[in-house]
Design a protein around this nucleic acid. Structure first.
Lengths: 222, 222, 222, 222
DNA sequence: TATGAATGAGTTTTCATTCAT
DNA sequence: AATGAATGAAAACTCATTCAT
């Protein structure tokens, strides 16, 4: 029992090392296609063969990395917005935007790009792992936002004239687009120069927050 | 003279066929890395060798495709916003957002993704072709937006309280992020399902326009 | 332990087979450029991929082949001329020339040609492997020859009037030129015909030996 | 007639330009395999197609270059050694060695290497052009040397004990080997360093000449 | 005769994955 | 379970030669 426990622990440690090595390579050093299995194995101090003991394919590693990120962020969201949350709707909305501001700076976002530019077979393998999760997470997020809108409508801090759930749907869509757009905008940044680069690229959400603080209520008005 | 003309024309036609074939493959069928030179050649009805007669490398093809898109869109922008433009600032701003709404539906946007997930050497080769152009285009766009804000300020149709040029800077950044975000958001869409998918993904800008029509002036207010 | 040993042995055997196959192709069948990696692999009964497991590049194979030849010959030289060598200087000199006579018939000499007509990058890769070795080997050879000249001067069997070391330098140069010249002279031979071909091409050293036996001492006279 | 003459001249000029361009590339800049037809064409200011109007294949160009060199040198030999030559046999022999000393410094010698490391098909094409010529040239050279030996034997300036013609045969062989060896010895030189490099590589013949001046007559003695 | 666009076979090299040990 | 040697399909790119104009 002891022995098996030790073996189990060792195995899990190897798995962790692989994921960590892959994360550093995929996210911080180079793009997915330019990272080889041998490279991950070497960095994780694991044999090439062992890689395939832990993960079915190279894409599988990416899928698990992505999965971990989604899970972590969902817990972050849950922690930031517990059901018995306090404050007015407007205050909560501000906090939500702050949350996405922080999220937009997370280098893991690049994983969305890696996955988008993955081939079909790879996407399917990702699907198997993440499909239901992401779908559920987004639904949960929409629920949270709808709740915020309703609370704001009630306490008068937000002027929401359409159906709160539909408004939440659109709001989440905009916020996600904005967040992911940051990943690709770095491409433009690498080309462009001059005046346009004079402020922090990530300030988008700060600006949005300022707007929300001052102009909320008119936002999704009819 | 006639002779040379015919040869020239044929050469140019082959070049066009290559670009068109590459466009279809890169943009509509699969990602850049999964498209092979042979495949493009076959689709363009051209020999492999001829590919290298027209373009130095595979990346060169991508660069030219990208370049053509940038050029085309810039002319689109110039046509939509001639100097002696008419209408109030608010009306012009609405038209600008409509322009980006249309742009966000252009499948060529995926090229920004292909380029972002290109390796370093490839990026450099793209730079050589596009660097100055993109930089200049964004500056031009910022100029147009700043002009709209100033006009709106004067005619009272827009309430712009910060410096119009700085506001334009941020506005352009937001609009570009939003537009590019659509590319990666398709990844989420491919995972997610249900209610969240019940409306057109591209409506982001429509929503934004509605907001602008109703709420303009509060937008970038201090 | 046993296990590892078997794997190791198999690997080394594959490496040997590759070198042997390459040797036969490069040296006896065709010139370096006309031999393909696939061809070597097929002849060595090894997969294409395995080639690159054992050698970094095609040039690397040539480099190792060359290196092995140099090493083998150096040991041959050491065996022929141990420190406590016997005989007069003249006798030793005769043996040295016999040694080069034998060497000039070694088909590996063609490797010098392959290398000379290799491109710059390839030469650099060869350099890394062989540079110091060759330099040291030639110095060692010059030392041996100088020793022979000194001994011959003392025992009166050789008339050496210049500084023995300088004389050795020149002698080695002549002998090496003569030896390598045989490689290219085969080109002339393949064109020419008739009387000139009536004696063994490799007899150059035999003739030189006869001369030395009879005329030694006058050779490098001032 | 005038017209045709002009056309003819133009054609010959193009041919000359091609040979000159090829010579510079093959001999002075890079090895045969690394030179492309397009490169020669560009340097000769001639179209790619025109190359094949003047020469059947790439190897054909090399063959003609080689042929020109052989022809030129043969005329050089004839000029240096006219039938009604003056001086003793020893003096003539000295002049012959001087001639080869000069020849060994001719960069065209590298052509022998290019040809040696040419594939079989290429060699055959060379054969067609040069076979008889080289064979005849060597025979002529042997004749000249034999004549010198006979004259030296008669006037007492050379001690030749074997049959002069056989001796000449061997002598020519040695001298050619020595001369060609210089080409490949440059490979060793590029590796080796130190003391061995302290004197002019081309001095081989100078040394040989010194020997001949002092020691002639013992040279090919039985 | 002259052009240069077009051809396509052929090359080296990479790398995810398998499998004997 | 773990290893790492072996596999081989596939990729980008080159270049001597041809041929329509």
């Amino acid at each position: 029992m002891e022995e098996i426990g030790r073996v189990e622990r060792k195995k899990r440690q190897a798995r962790e090392r692989i994921l960590k090595a892959a994360e550093e390579l995929f996210i911080r050093e180079k793009r997915y296609d330019d990272v080889t299995i041998r490279e991950i194995a070497r960095k994780a101090d694991v044999s090439v063969g062992a890689m395939y003991l832990h993960f079915k394919t190279k894409e599988d590693i990416l899928a698990h990395l992505f999965s971990e990120f989604i899970e972590k962020e969902n817990f972050g969201l849950e922690k930031s917005f517990p059901r018995e949350d306090e404050g007015t709707g407007a205050e909560q909305l501000t906090r939500l935007v702050e949350y996405f501001d922080h999220l937009s700076r997370d280098p893991h976002l690049v994983l969305f790009g890696s996955i988008t530019f993955l081939n079909q077979k790879g996407k399917e393998s990702l699907n198997r792992i993440n499909q239901n999760r992401i779908s559920a997470d987004i639904d949960k997020l929409i629920g949270i936002v709808a709740g915020i809108f309703e609370r704001g409508k009630k306490d008068g801090s937000l002027r929401v004239q359409l159906d709160p759930r539909l408004t939440a749907n659109v709001f989440v869509d905009v916020i996600i687009s904005l967040m992911l757009g940051v990943v690709l905008k770095s491409t433009i940044s690498s080309f462009a120069s001059g005046e346009a680069r004079q402020y922090d690229l990530h300030s988008i959400f700060s600006v949005l927050r300022v707007f929300l603080e001052k102009g909320t209520g008119i936002y999704f008005d009819k």
